[in-house]
Amino acid sequence: MHRHKKITDSLKNSPLADFKVGVDNVIFSVDTAQNRLMVLLVMRHDEPFLDQWCLPGTLVRHGESLEDAAYRILAEKIKVENLYLEQLYTFGDPGRDPRESPSSFGVRYLSVSYFALVRFADAQLIANGVSGIAWYPVKQVPQLAFDHNEILEYGYRRLRNKLEYSPIAFEVLPEVFTLSDLYQLYATVLGENFSDYSNFRTRLLKLGFLSDTGLKASRGAGRPASLYRFDAEAFAPLKDKPLVFI
């Protein structure tokens, strides 16, 4: 007998689960000054996991959609004009939350996670008189409450995938940018070995949706660099095609 059938048979007469639904946001940003991928963490001020870092989250209120709850917790923690937000995954393993009762009739806690990317320079954290909100480098994240390390890792994989197959980077870059700015964002998230600059530049320009503004940016002693703009209209015919940006 297959394991799946054994599990199904053992649960056949179990009572239906009673769920509370929460939303947890994996909010990423790129600190371009120090070339670090950052994630927003908050300190818990209640049990369980009192005084432990976690992802910003909330239980969904009566009459509130999941997306509205995700945006509400964003608005409570951060002020930002440009952001990218999408639903990530639902985490619902039994026992993922210590508040669950060992009884079959106890309340279960689901987490519907959302993935967000915001512009670091524009993001203003909201403390509201409560300490414990900070950007953490993804590589230095401590042990988080609940299963939030697992949720964070899932979000990190999604971010890397989105950079390869979608124009998500342009959601958080300034309106005009150099190819070096764009390359640095990719290198920060994907690692410096993902591509050399020359191949990256050739690939992106060949795709045809970067518009040269004719303007130059002078930084340091090097030659002034061309400033580009993402052309959403030129990208539109490519939207549903399996592109690889790198």
Rank of each mutant, 00 (worst) to 15 (best):
P98A: 05
W135Y: 07
E233L: 09
N128M: 12
Q52I: 09
P242V: 00
R36E: 14
P137D: 06
N193V: 14
T178L: 09
G132T: 00
P48E: 01
V23H: 06
F120N: 14
L210D: 01
Y197F: 13
Q52V: 12
L55H: 02
F245R: 05
E81N: 14
L173G: 02
F49Q: 02
N199D: 15
T202P: 00
R158K: 11
Q52D: 07
N25H: 08
L243Y: 00
K77T: 06
L243M: 06
R61A: 13
R201W: 08
G132D: 10
K6H: 14
D46E: 14
I246E: 00
V244C: 10
K241W: 00
L207N: 08
A145R: 01
G208R: 04
L163D: 04
R157H: 12
P94M: 07
S226W: 02
K216R: 10
V130C: 01
P167E: 03
F194E: 03
A236E: 13
S195V: 05
Q34T: 13
L40M: 12
D68L: 12
Y71M: 13
V26F: 11
E86T: 09
G214P: 01
E47Y: 07
V39E: 05
M38L: 06
R108E: 08
Q140A: 15
E86C: 06
M1D: 13
D181A: 04
F200L: 06
A121K: 08
R201T: 14
L117C: 06
L204Q: 12
F146G: 10
F245L: 11
I133H: 09
I73D: 11
A145V: 03
Q184P: 14
L173W: 06
V23T: 06
R157N: 11
Y109M: 03
R219N: 10
R36V: 00
L50M: 10
P237T: 03
V172F: 03
S113R: 03
F19D: 12
R157S: 13
A225F: 01
S104Q: 14
V112W: 02
Y136K: 05
S113D: 12
A69T: 08
D9Q: 14
V60P: 01
G220D: 03
T202W: 00
R108K: 11
G57T: 01
W53A: 03
S14Q: 15
K241I: 11
F146I: 04
N193T: 13
L117N: 05
D9Y: 05
L41E: 02
S113W: 07
S103H: 03
L182W: 06
S218H: 04
V42L: 03
I168L: 07
A234W: 05
K6T: 10
D122T: 02
P56Q: 00
R61D: 10
P242C: 04
P167G: 05
A17T: 00
Y71Q: 15
P142R: 08
S111P: 09
A187L: 07
A70L: 05
T8G: 15
V26Q: 10
Y165K: 15
G95A: 06
Y228T: 11
Q87W: 01
E100P: 05
K77M: 12
F194L: 03
Y89L: 11
R203I: 02
E67L: 02
D97E: 04
E76C: 03
L215D: 14
M38K: 07
H2E: 13
R229M: 10
A33H: 09
Y84S: 10
F115M: 11
I133M: 07
G95L: 08
L163Q: 04
D9H: 08
Q140W: 07
E86V: 09
V23K: 07
A75E: 15
